[in-house]
């Protein structure tokens, strides 16, 4: 509770939330460039209201968000790390406003895609999930990167970051089961391939369960990688069948990423004392290309479904 008191209301419009609204939760810092497209994308997908925590932006993100009619905004200058990488803030908002709503918890550089997302919006998906008595929906993080070396292309605000990155690793993921929480632990992708060859164990976790029919007893344990109660982590079939799932297209590796990484290291706010960020920064100084001959060009959800990165399950 003490940590949540660090949240300061900036512009609250939660009274506008209707019972059937799907809520989007996000924490961010200095994302002004990305916000226009982010909000547009999720509005079109069917988000009814955004619950956003601004962790000390000074680039105008705060002012921009405060003007949006479907955004409720809190701010905090407190430590992202001490708030367990923002999860304490998210849990607090979810338990207060999320109960009985479908909630989507994402970062500003993550774009949720799922089977049929080009013809069926989030309301159709959650309606089907309700009808199927499914309470949580997984979407693994898929790192996208540009064809050129990171930092060579210029991102223009409002531009589609998925198109600006566009490539991904299709088939180098590893999965283990976490016996404590029952969730899967997925690693791999371009970051493991290029930045964690010496120590694959430390490669970032890619398993995520961002879409949840929230109940006030729910709580995210570690980022959106796992939740309690444990049953919510059972987003996978154990007998060979496939449950439906989606993907979070991760567009971190835009040109804006370089400055961002430097800043994050200075603040030492990320996992493992910024280990991941330090590894990036070392590599980024050499302006690497994540791209390789075997990189796959993103073309849509059907591609991810046929590659086996996500599944339509029995949704037809």
């Amino acid at each position: 509770m003490r940590k949540s008191s660090e949240l300061e209301a900036v512009h609250i419009r939660t009274s506008r939330i209707r019972d059937e609204d799907i809520l989007c939760c996000a924490t961010l810092r200095n994302e002004l460039d990305r916000l226009p497209y982010f909000l547009k994308y999720y509005r079109e997908l069917g988000i009814g209201h955004f619950l956003i925590v601004d962790n000390g932006s000074d680039d105008g993100s705060t002012e921009y968000l405060a003007q949006q009619a479907d955004v409720s905004l809190w701010s905090t200058g407190a430590s992202y790390k001490a708030a367990r990488f923002g999860m304490d803030w998210m849990n607090r908002l979810l338990s207060r406003y999320g109960h009985n709503h479908w909630t989507l918890t994402v970062d500003p550089d993550e774009f949720f895609v799922y089977p049929f997302c080009d013809s069926r919006d989030l309301r159709a998906l959650t309606h089907w999930l309700d009808a199927s008595s499914i309470r949580s929906f997984s979407a693994m993080l898929l790192d996208l990167y540009p064809r050129a070396a990171v930092g060579e292309t210029r991102y223009v605000p409002g531009q589609d970051p998925v198109a600006a990155t566009g490539w991904f690793d299709a088939g180098n993921y590893t999965i283990k089961r976490n016996e404590l929480y029952g969730n899967l632990w997925i690693q791999g992708g371009v970051r493991a391939r290029t930045l964690f060859t010496e120590d694959p164990y430390r490669a970032p976790a890619l398993n995520k369960i961002p879409l949840v029919k929230w109940h006030r007893r729910n709580v995210y344990v570690s980022s959106t990688h796992s939740l309690l109660p444990r049953g919510l982590n059972r987003v996978y079939d154990e007998w060979g069948g496939e449950k439906a799932s989606g993907v979070l297209l991760h567009t971190k590796f835009l040109d804006v990423f370089e400055t961002k990484a430097r800043e994050e290291i200075d603040r030492q706010q990320h996992y493992a004392d910024g280990f991941e960020y330090r590894a990036y920064a070392d590599r980024l100084r050499q302006r690497p290309s994540f791209w390789c001959d075997m990189s796959e060009r993103y073309s849509g959800w059907q591609q991810l479904d046929s590659l086996g990165l996500m599944s339509r399950g029995n949704w037809a």
Binding site: M140, I175, R177, Y236, D237, G240, E242, L309
Partner: peptide
């Protein structure tokens, strides 16, 4: 196929 929503084991 081993993936996020299908992980046969044992």
């Amino acid at each position: 196929l081993y993936m996020q929503s299908s992980f046969p084991h044992g």
